[in-house]
Design a protein around this nucleic acid. Structure first.
Lengths: 227, 227
DNA sequence: GAAATGGTTCGTCATGGAACGAACGATGGA
DNA sequence: TCCATCGTTCGTTCCATGACGAACCATTTC
């Protein structure tokens, strides 16, 4: 199909890469947890390893995902937080009016969005941090206040390496299930893995989404009050 | 292709609708100006009217666009500002690193994003309004200050009907060419059409994007200082 | 080294769907 | 009333590509 050259970003190429049921499902899977190996992505999309290889290669060429070898495994993750934002925007549109309330309860309650906490849990924590003056609002991001620095360190998050990452520090991410934004970026990811390390949340076995443990209930209440 | 039911939004359906070169181009065209008739969209994508009909129907079924009959014409527009946000997010990702600076100058400078001003012009105006205290920042939106209300009325924007619209009043839209956000929503659209009505900007004949007229240069400087 | 596992490559198949031209219904203007 | 224009419908063609199994490397484990 010949066509005059397009000004601006090459949407057609991107749309081609995104516009396949299996590939978008892969991106969706990568939104939930940090990174997955090829086999998990094949299984998760219900497709043979051979087919998965092709799709993953295509996604990688489109710079939507990145891979690293680990032994005989190949682990994939979203290429950039910007990609996560894009997928999030797609999800926001994909939630149809009448079906909007059909978003499964566990997903509304707590889930990963890329590498940070989302759903009502992520939102609640973010709101609490704002209320307590540990975060403040900036145009496109949150800012960590002095009291916030103390709080994070006391919570067990070593901030130095978090600041050293090349990605945005405290990004604001818009959630498709709640339509409000929550803490993302390097700081959001660090917070999420700390909460995970504390055993406050656990990955749900086969479904997507997270469950808050009873220790988590207590801990969250102690730190953030009623969420 | 049988597959277990997906939790959450139906991304596959959406991805299918978006993932075609012609259809994404149509969405792109609808981002620039308010609304277009079927023929313009056919011509703009280099496709026959028959083919265009099929694509437009598909996009409409996916609720990405909406149409109304006007005489023997059928005019299309993006269904919701949320869709515009999604396309914008796609564009942001589609801008490749090395090619980033290859974004054509006129598009960087001034263009429509859906129905409001974007590019450096939209950003500059937004910044000026913030600096002058006519807008203030909220979490997901801008807020119009009391002085801002006066300013808009003096500028010739009747705010009452703008507030009555069902869409968000002063949304923050992230720009793919500048990677910063600018005034959108009902207020952004009203401002854009006022600026257009004043003859300060004109649609570029065949390219995309806008040009600032000499009257516009003067008017913008007078109201906003150096942009 | 052999066996097991993860991933890739290759060849093939089948299907979806994108495109067109032609014929048709509808609307508006002369 | 008649013509021009706009859009839709239909039938057809044809190509892209998504899927698989089998064979093939590479790495770890025993």
């Amino acid at each position: 199909m010949e066509r005059t050259m397009d000004a601006g970003p090459d949407l057609a190429a991107l749309a081609g890469a995104v516009g396949d049921a299996t590939r978008i499902r892969m991106l969706e899977l990568l939104m939930e947890g940090r990174s997955l190996v090829a086999k998990e992505l094949a299984f998760g999309t219900g497709v043979s390893p051979a087919t998965a290889t092709v799709h993953l290669k295509r996604l990688e060429q489109a710079r939507l995902i990145r891979s690293t070898r680990q032994g005989r495994n190949k682990v994939f993750r979203l290429a950039t937080p910007t990609v996560a934002r894009m997928v999030e925007a797609l999800m926001t549109v994909a939630v149809r009016g009448p079906r909007a309330s059909a978003t499964p309860e566990p997903l509304r309650a707590a889930r990963y969005c890329y590498d940070h906490l989302a759903g009502r849990l992520g939102m609640g924590i973010t709101d609490a941090l704002l209320r307590q003056g540990h975060l403040s609002l900036r145009r496109r991001a949150f800012a960590l206040t002095p009291s916030g620095e103390d709080w994070f360190e006391a919570f067990g998050v070593d901030l130095a390496p978090v600041r050293d990452q090349r990605r945005q520090f405290a990004h604001r991410c818009l959630d498709w299930s709640e339509r409000r934004d929550h803490l993302a970026g390097a700081l959001g990811a660090a917070l999420a893995s700390r909460v995970f390390a504390l055993g406050w949340v656990e990955r749900q076995p086969d479904s997507r989404g997270l469950v808050v443990t009873s220790a988590g209930q207590r801990g969250l209440r102690r730190h953030f009050g009623a969420l």
